[in-house]
Every structure is written in C-alpha cells, then in structure tokens.
C-alpha cells in the first residue's frame, strides 16, 4: 500500500512544482529553494514525520525532505545541549546526501569530458 501512497505523494509534489513553474516567472532555482523552506516549515510541529510514517520512501525523495531533515536534526540535539544543539545537529541527517553529491560529482567530473 505504501507503494501507491508513494506514487501519489511524490507525483503531487512534482505537479505543484510544475504548476508554479508554468504559471509564474519563477525559475527552477526559486522553486527548489521554496520547497526546502516549505519542508522545514512542515517539520516544526512534526507534520512531515507523520507523512513519512504513512507514505514511506515517496516522502523522503523530494527536496522537501531536505528541509525536514535539517530541522529534525537540529531539534533533536536541543534536548541534550540546549540552544547550541541547533548549530551542532543541523547537518546530522542531511550529511549523507551532501557528502554523496560532492564525492560522486568530483570523481565523475575527473573521469568524464564535458559535452555541449
């Protein structure tokens, strides 16, 4: 059942993005930044967590999940360390994505030639 929910949820997010792209003058850069902020906003009252519990992988793939993980990592460290936990835990959960992007991009750039 989670497969169907994943299909619907991820498709819906992409549909909203495409509608914003077509009907306004915003570029894809604006839209991805906007979606990250929306994801961060949805997590402050743990709404996105309950979405992930129901939907599964379909909710972790879109870029909204990036903002969600930033807030989630920051907030989970505040219970131990206070305000400074916001600084310490910000990249706890998103580090995987960023490290993977940097590593793969660097090595593939060294191997491949740019095509135009």
């Amino acid at each position: 059942m989670k497969l169907v929910y994943s299909f619907l949820f991820c498709g819906l997010i992409c549909l909203i993005g495409q509608m914003i792209l077509d009907n306004t003058k915003l570029t894809p850069g604006h839209i991805t930044s906007l979606f990250v902020v929306v994801g961060a906003f949805l997590d402050i009252f743990h709404i996105y967590d309950s979405i992930i519990k129901v939907v599964g992988g379909g909710a972790q793939l879109p870029i909204t999940s990036f903002g969600h993980s930033l807030v989630h990592g920051a907030l989970s460290n505040t219970s131990e360390h206070g305000v400074i936990g916001l600084f310490m835990g910000m990249f706890d959960l998103t580090a995987t994505g960023i490290v993977a992007v940097i590593l793969f991009a660097f090595f593939f750039t060294l191997i491949c030639k740019p095509k135009d």
């Binding site: 497969l3 994943s6 299909f7 992988g57 379909g58 793939l61 879109p62």
Partner: peptide
C-alpha cells in the same frame, strides 16, 4: 514524479 516515488519505496 510518481514513478520516481514508486521506485524509491
């Protein structure tokens, strides 16, 4: 997007 989410799950 739906197919991508489906593949992820």
């Amino acid at each position: 997007g739906g197919v991508m989410g489906f593949l992820a799950e």
